[in-house]
Design a protein around this nucleic acid. Structure first.
Length: 581
RNA sequence: GGUCCCGUGGUCCAAUGGAUAGGACGAUGGCCUCCGAAGCCGUAGGUGGUGGUUCGAUUCCACCCGGGACCA
């Protein structure tokens, strides 16, 4: 049980005694440490309901709350109930955490299965920096959800059946350089694709040829299918390489093509059940009388009232759309994987699309907790969205290479004690960690302009700062000449820096559930920065190795716990900790 | 035209309706004879505008001004 939960249940009991009926208490970490560690506004909320004096009610509640040995309490301001955890209670809590492999984290996801749909790049195109958000945020959410007890299925819904294959097929047959393909498959595919794309702009005949190739592919032409399969294979290999560098993995790679065969039946079912109907030859899901108050995504407000904004699931020419594939995907995930929740880590622009899909799925009877975990755009220097087609965007491979190069440079400068092999590995861990942390430490909804120095900063609020903190702690244990067992360590906290560190260590298990409430890894990232700052302050103010027993063991135990929480927290963000750096 | 997202010190970002709005970069002043200075301790500087709800608003509501996205 976390300290927060502990206090909350004690306050709830007190409220029940005072009011004579069960009542859930509000308890949060204090906004400002001057007032205590935790605070509750329950007295003010209840006083308003009962129209009584909040401070008088607060007095009654305080008289009834049993917190001996855990905290002290006082009433402040208009009626805040402020609680300050006793140093010995923090010490006892830290001792319990040292014996807990979960470090105090609850398991709210126990018994639930969640499918996380993230990354999902198009094949035969290079990933650029704009693709990094979904991949990194999605991976981190998978790790956190798994740790909090969810059965997590990470699914890479790659775009392997798009219209781009018309051009690729035509290019493959006319301008492919087989030697180049072997050397660097993705680049060659991109070169071919761009060539055809340019040619098609000038010559409508080329465009027609491409369309014909696409139709042949979709009809199952063996030659085109074989080429398509080769494209998929080399593209996947290229993607795997990037995922390997990023330390991101998936349980499945069920892309668009996997669902292709299910689409005609799905549209038929929608028509059959009256969920969709034909309009101008296309098959659409309409609002069908839903009231504006329900905020039906198939309705949109126009100047002259409400009008339909249907989701099209089959075009007039018989082609299918993203909406169709997404619905088939939902059915598969629910029926085959028993998904209780599906999280889509996809950018803001897709918001309307997902609202429509979720609504259509609900009408179809597919019950599941759908979440569109949207994120803001990465902008170019012109403050406009990076376009996949423009081609002059910074490539993801290039970004990661630069990250490692910059890390290597600073390691060469500051870490002469490392062997070349160690230095190379650390450059990897630090460089990639910096990139991931830059992404994870901010609110996912914020748009930002891509800048090298921002993504690759190694000082300040960065992963290297956290990694460095961890290394410093481990360094203490390397210098320790005696054995130390954290398991039966006894803690005594007296210095303010010790107490503050213990306070933050106790918060780890409180922060993690919050992260999943709004799917915001930045809460964890910011917590880790706070923890590391607390550790550095402690470290400056409180000598460890030079202190005497029993203080020495107590401080070593704090170090050990800090090290575990930092490593675990970074691990949940998908960031590794080097032993030395 | 409609819908959605975003406006926080010079810059970049935080802040479940809470109290004196945090942090980083940059600027500036200190700290390595003392567990590694990728660090620590100081200083200066901020919520686009007008109303409303509330004991209390960066947060919720309305309108306005700016930036962006999506659907037509």
């Amino acid at each position: 049980m976390t300290l927060l939960q502990n206090l909350e249940s004690r306050l709830s009991r007190a409220l029940e005694n005072v009011l004579g009926e069960p009542c859930a208490a509000n308890m949060t970490p204090a906004a400002d440490l001057r007032f205590g560690d935790y605070q509750s506004n329950s007295a003010m909320v209840l006083a308003k309901k009962q129209k009584t004096n909040p401070r008088a009610l607060a007095e009654q509640i305080m008289a009834a709350v049993e917190i001996d040995g855990l905290a002290t309490a006082k009433i402040d301001g208009p009626g805040f109930l402020n609680f300050t955890i006793l140093p010995e209670a923090y010490a006892a809590h830290a001792e319990r955490l040292l014996g807990d492999p979960r470090l105090g984290a609850p398991e709210p996801g126990k018994g639930k299965t969640v499918v996380v749909d993230f990354s999902a790049p198009n094949v035969a195109k290079p990933m650029h920096v704009g693709h990094i958000r979904s991949t990194i945020i999605g991976d981190s959410l998978c790790r956190i959800a798994r740790f909090l007890g969810f059965e997590v299925i990470a699914d890479n819904h790659i775009g392997d059946w798009g219209t781009q294959f018309g051009m690729i097929l035509h290019g493959w047959k006319t301008t492919l350089d087989h030697t180049a393909l072997e050397a660097d498959p993705i680049s060659e595919l991109v070169r071919v694709y761009r060539g055809v794309n340019a040619a098609a702009k000038d010559d409508p005949a080329v465009l027609e040829t491409c369309k014909a190739e696409l139709v042949k592919l979709q009809a199952g032409d063996p030659e085109n299918l074989a080429i398509w399969q080769q494209c998929i294979d080399v593209s996947k290999a290229g993607l795997q390489k990037i995922y390997g560098i990023l330390d991101v993995s998936f349980d499945h790679w069920l892309g668009e093509s996997f669902y292709n065969g299910m689409l005609p039946g799905l549209v038929y079912e929608f028509l059959e059940k009256g969920l969709a109907r034909e309009s101008d030859g296309a098959v659409c899901v309409f609002s069908d009388g839903a009231k504006p108050a329900e905020q039906d995504p198939f309705l949109v407000h126009k100047e002259n009232g409400w009008t339909d904004n249907p989701a099209i699931i089959r075009k007039a020419d018989g082609g299918f759309l993203y909406a169709t594939t997404d619905l088939a995907t939902i059915r598969y995930r629910i029926e085959e994987w028993n998904a209780d929740e599906i999280w889509y880590v996809v950018g803001m622009p897709q918001q309307l699309h997902f609202r429509q899909i979720f609504e259509a799925a609900a009408r179809w009877g597919k019950t599941c907790d759908f979440r569109h975990i949207a994120f803001g755009s990465i902008l170019g220097e012109d403050r406009k969205m990076m376009k996949t087609r423009s081609g002059d965007n910074v490539g993801l491979v290039e970004l990661l290479d630069e990250a490692r190069a910059r890390a290597a440079a600073i390691i060469g400068e500051k870490s002469a004690h490392l062997s070349p092999e160690e230095a190379a590995e650390v450059a990897d861990i630090v460089g990639i960690g910096a990139v991931k942390f830059a992404e994870l430490s901010q609110n996912r909804l914020t748009d930002y302009v891509f800048a090298w120095d921002r993504m690759l900063a190694l000082q300040g609020d960065t992963a290297p700062y956290l990694q460095y903190s961890h290394v410093r702690i481990r360094s203490i244990f390397r210098k320790l000449d005696a054995d130390f067992s954290a398991k039966d360590a006894k803690l005594t906290l007296s210095a303010p820096e010790e107490i503050h560190l213990a306070r933050l260590l106790a918060r780890f298990g409180e922060v993690l559930p919050l992260v999943l409430e709004d799917h915001r890894p930045n809460l964890l990232a910011n917590y880790l920065l706070e923890l590391a700052r607390a550790f550095h302050s402690f470290f400056e103010a409180c000598p460890v190795l030079k202190s005497v027993e029993p203080m020495k063991s107590s401080r070593l135990a704090l170090c050990e716990l800090s090290s575990r929480v930092l490593e675990k927290g970074l691990g949940l963000l998908g960031i590794r900790c080097p032993e030395r750096m």
